[in-house]
């Protein structure tokens, strides 16, 4: 079943990706058929199952809170599409 167009439009906005009216139909159908296929998961009984949240069972540990890195302002700005002084420059946000 094709995904509802209003849902596709909402997802597109959340994703910050433009979807033209021409593309909408195709995307609705494609996403719909993938979701239909994924619905297979519904038949699995997962009532007493804890979700697996990562790829490893290694326990996380705390490290000492010390500064051992940093001072890379120049490196960090090196790939900036637009910079002003030592800052990233973006279109005006506040009027």
């Amino acid at each position: 079943m094709a995904m509802k167009e209003e849902i596709v439009r909402k997802i597109a906005i959340l994703s910050r990706i433009n979807v033209s009216d021409d593309e909408l139909d195709n995307i609705s159908r494609e996403l719909g058929s993938i979701i239909d296929w994924i619905e297979l998961l519904k038949e699995v009984d997962t009532q007493s199952v804890e979700p697996m949240t990562g790829g490893t069972d290694i326990k996380s540990f705390k490290r000492e809170d010390i500064v051992n890195d940093g001072g890379y302002q120049e490196k960090i700005l090196k790939n900036a599409p637009s910079k002003n002084d030592n800052l990233f420059e973006v279109p005006k946000v506040v009027e």
Binding site: M3, I7, V8, K10, I11, A12, L14, S15, I17, I27, L31, I34, I35, I38, L41, K42, V44, T46, V49, E50, P51, M52, T53
Partner: peptide
């Protein structure tokens, strides 16, 4: 990105993302 955004969006998270994580455990 669309698929993932859909699976994580309000109202669908439990049905898709959480469900998939549980199946992953199985």
């Amino acid at each position: 990105i669309f698929l993932g955004t859909y699976a994580l969006s309000a109202g669908y998270y439990d049905a898709y993302y959480l469900k998939a994580q549980k199946v992953r455990q199985l």
